[in-house]
């Protein structure tokens, strides 16, 4: 049985490894700046982050995507799921910190 949460978590782990700096910046903004005013900036950063991860995986290390595609996932749906998870976590943090 395919476990999507575990697959996404694995993707998230791999993607985070690639662009750890981006993650740290967004988490930092998230946690310490009461991000109501920064929600637009954060969303933009997250979009930029996933665009860069997509381009990196697609153009530079496409074989890494083969793991997920071999599990029957489409490239775009994989990125979309991870991005939504990321966005959801960000919104939870926003609610908790405001």
């Amino acid at each position: 049985m395919k476990s999507y949460p575990r697959i996404i978590l694995l993707f998230y782990k791999q993607a985070s490894g690639v662009f750890l700096g981006f993650h740290l910046v967004t988490i930092y903004l998230n946690l310490f700046f009461m991000p109501k005013e920064y929600i637009g900036v954060l969303t933009f950063l997250k979009l930029l982050q996933y665009l860069l991860i997509y381009l990196y995986f697609d153009k530079v290390e496409s074989h890494r995507l083969a793991f997920f595609m071999n599990l029957g996932l489409r490239k775009l749906s994989l990125f979309a799921m991870a991005w939504f998870l990321d966005l959801a976590l960000m919104l939870i943090l926003l609610v908790l910190t405001s």
Binding site: I7, H63, N70, L71
Partner: peptide, 27 residues
């Protein structure tokens, strides 16, 4: 490749270093 109809073993491999073998087998 959707729904695992077609799979590929690329030249460079497809497994991640940090994954445990039993996780791979589970997935």
């Amino acid at each position: 490749s959707a729904n695992q109809l077609l799979q590929l073993l690329p030249q460079n491999g497809f497994l991640f270093d940090s994954t445990k073998i039993n996780e791979v087998l589970f997935h």
